[in-house]
Amino acid sequence: LHIEINVNGLRIELHNVSEELAERIREILEKVDDREEARRLAEELIK
């Protein structure tokens, strides 16, 4: 499954994740104000 999410102008592509996991990642990242911090957090979440 390939999912693309957009959060605060940051486009993140997720591969091989469930829709539920992608939604949780999006919800978490929406709470982060700083774009660079959101990017770093996204990288950690999808490892």
Results as ranks from 00 to 15, higher is better:
residue 24 R to K: 13
residue 4 E to M: 03
residue 1 L to I: 13
residue 13 E to T: 15
residue 35 R to A: 14
residue 32 V to L: 11
residue 38 A to Q: 09
residue 10 L to Y: 02
residue 39 R to G: 07
residue 24 R to M: 15
residue 36 E to V: 08
residue 10 L to Q: 15
residue 39 R to F: 10
residue 17 V to L: 09
residue 22 A to W: 07
residue 9 G to Y: 00
residue 20 E to A: 14
residue 34 D to Y: 04
residue 26 R to D: 01
residue 23 E to Y: 04
residue 24 R to Y: 11
residue 33 D to P: 12
residue 26 R to E: 02
residue 18 S to L: 04
residue 41 L to S: 05
residue 43 E to Q: 08
residue 8 N to H: 05
residue 8 N to I: 02
residue 17 V to S: 05
residue 40 R to I: 12
residue 43 E to T: 07
residue 44 E to W: 04
residue 20 E to M: 08
residue 44 E to T: 08
residue 24 R to I: 10
residue 41 L to A: 08
residue 47 K to R: 12
residue 15 H to M: 05
residue 24 R to S: 09
residue 13 E to Q: 14
residue 29 L to Q: 01
residue 20 E to P: 05
residue 14 L to S: 01
residue 16 N to D: 08
residue 22 A to L: 12
residue 34 D to S: 09
residue 26 R to T: 06
residue 11 R to G: 11
residue 39 R to H: 08
residue 31 K to Y: 11
residue 47 K to W: 05
residue 9 G to W: 00
residue 35 R to Y: 14
residue 17 V to F: 06
residue 22 A to Q: 04
residue 11 R to E: 15
residue 7 V to G: 06
residue 19 E to L: 15
residue 47 K to L: 11
residue 15 H to R: 05
residue 21 L to I: 13
residue 25 I to K: 00
residue 26 R to L: 11
residue 39 R to V: 14
residue 18 S to H: 05
residue 40 R to K: 12
residue 35 R to Q: 13
residue 32 V to Q: 11
residue 9 G to R: 00
residue 31 K to I: 08
residue 7 V to C: 07
residue 28 I to M: 11
residue 45 L to Q: 04
residue 16 N to G: 13
residue 35 R to H: 15
residue 20 E to N: 09
residue 8 N to F: 00
residue 41 L to M: 12
residue 44 E to D: 13
residue 2 H to W: 02
residue 18 S to Q: 04
residue 12 I to Y: 04
residue 38 A to M: 12
residue 14 L to I: 07
residue 7 V to H: 11
residue 42 A to F: 11
residue 43 E to P: 03
residue 15 H to D: 04
residue 11 R to C: 09
residue 10 L to C: 12
residue 38 A to G: 06
residue 17 V to W: 07
residue 40 R to E: 07
residue 12 I to R: 00
residue 24 R to G: 05
residue 38 A to R: 04
residue 10 L to P: 04
residue 27 E to C: 06
residue 5 I to D: 02
residue 36 E to I: 09
residue 10 L to W: 02
residue 8 N to E: 13
residue 30 E to Y: 06
residue 37 E to V: 11
residue 19 E to Q: 13
residue 35 R to K: 14
residue 47 K to I: 14
residue 28 I to W: 07
residue 31 K to R: 12
residue 3 I to C: 04
residue 42 A to V: 14
residue 20 E to Q: 11
residue 9 G to H: 02
residue 38 A to S: 07
residue 6 N to F: 03
residue 7 V to L: 06
residue 2 H to V: 15
residue 6 N to R: 02
residue 12 I to A: 01
residue 5 I to K: 00
residue 23 E to A: 12
residue 26 R to G: 03
residue 22 A to R: 04
residue 9 G to C: 03
residue 3 I to M: 05
residue 33 D to M: 14
residue 28 I to H: 06
residue 41 L to I: 12
residue 3 I to K: 03
residue 5 I to E: 02
residue 37 E to G: 08
residue 16 N to E: 06
residue 7 V to F: 05
residue 45 L to P: 01
residue 41 L to E: 05
residue 7 V to M: 06
residue 35 R to P: 15
residue 36 E to G: 07
residue 4 E to S: 11
residue 23 E to K: 13
residue 8 N to D: 15
residue 6 N to V: 12
residue 21 L to T: 12
residue 8 N to M: 00
residue 46 I to N: 03
residue 10 L to E: 15
residue 40 R to G: 05
residue 16 N to T: 04
residue 45 L to D: 01
residue 39 R to D: 04
residue 37 E to P: 03
residue 41 L to Y: 05
residue 21 L to K: 05
residue 42 A to Y: 08
residue 14 L to K: 00
residue 5 I to L: 09
residue 37 E to Q: 12
residue 35 R to C: 07
residue 37 E to D: 10
residue 41 L to W: 06
residue 11 R to L: 15
residue 29 L to G: 01
residue 35 R to L: 14
residue 38 A to L: 15
residue 19 E to N: 12
residue 25 I to A: 02
residue 47 K to C: 06
residue 26 R to N: 03
residue 33 D to T: 14
residue 12 I to M: 07
residue 29 L to F: 10
residue 15 H to C: 09
residue 15 H to Y: 05
residue 17 V to N: 03
residue 35 R to F: 14
residue 14 L to Q: 00
residue 19 E to G: 09
residue 1 L to A: 11
residue 34 D to E: 07
residue 44 E to N: 10
residue 25 I to S: 00
residue 37 E to C: 10
residue 42 A to I: 15
residue 12 I to C: 08
residue 36 E to N: 09
residue 12 I to F: 07
residue 3 I to V: 11
residue 29 L to S: 01
residue 33 D to S: 14
residue 22 A to H: 05
residue 36 E to H: 10
residue 42 A to C: 04
residue 16 N to Y: 07
residue 11 R to V: 15
residue 5 I to R: 00
residue 15 H to F: 07
residue 22 A to N: 02
residue 46 I to P: 01
residue 12 I to G: 01
residue 13 E to M: 15
residue 2 H to I: 15
residue 43 E to A: 07
residue 7 V to E: 10
residue 3 I to R: 04
residue 2 H to A: 06
residue 32 V to G: 07
residue 41 L to G: 03
residue 34 D to V: 07
residue 34 D to M: 06
residue 21 L to V: 14
residue 10 L to T: 15
residue 18 S to T: 14
residue 37 E to A: 09
residue 12 I to N: 00
residue 39 R to T: 11
residue 27 E to T: 12
residue 33 D to N: 13
residue 18 S to D: 08
residue 17 V to I: 10
residue 33 D to Y: 14
residue 4 E to Y: 02
residue 19 E to C: 10
residue 10 L to M: 14
residue 33 D to C: 05
residue 23 E to Q: 13
residue 9 G to E: 05
residue 6 N to D: 15
residue 40 R to M: 09
residue 25 I to W: 04
residue 21 L to F: 15
residue 1 L to D: 07
residue 19 E to A: 14
residue 43 E to H: 08
residue 38 A to H: 03
residue 2 H to R: 05
residue 11 R to Y: 15
residue 9 G to P: 00
residue 47 K to F: 08
residue 18 S to Y: 04
residue 16 N to R: 04
residue 8 N to V: 02
residue 31 K to L: 13
residue 4 E to D: 05
residue 13 E to G: 03
residue 34 D to T: 09
residue 44 E to P: 01
residue 30 E to W: 04
residue 32 V to I: 13
residue 15 H to L: 08
residue 41 L to K: 10
residue 37 E to L: 12
residue 17 V to E: 03
residue 25 I to D: 00
residue 24 R to F: 06
residue 42 A to R: 01
residue 2 H to P: 07
residue 29 L to D: 01
residue 40 R to T: 12
residue 9 G to I: 00
residue 41 L to R: 09
residue 39 R to I: 15
residue 2 H to Q: 06
residue 11 R to A: 15
residue 24 R to A: 13
residue 18 S to F: 03
residue 34 D to K: 07
residue 9 G to M: 00
residue 37 E to H: 11
residue 46 I to F: 04
residue 46 I to T: 10
residue 17 V to H: 02
residue 15 H to Q: 05
residue 44 E to V: 08
residue 20 E to V: 11
residue 45 L to S: 03
residue 38 A to E: 01
residue 24 R to T: 09
residue 14 L to P: 00
residue 2 H to C: 11
residue 8 N to Q: 03
residue 6 N to E: 15
residue 9 G to T: 00
residue 22 A to T: 06
residue 23 E to C: 06
residue 26 R to I: 10
residue 21 L to G: 04
residue 29 L to H: 01
residue 39 R to M: 15
residue 38 A to T: 09
residue 46 I to A: 15
residue 27 E to S: 14
residue 13 E to H: 10
residue 32 V to R: 05
residue 6 N to Q: 06
residue 39 R to N: 07
residue 12 I to K: 00
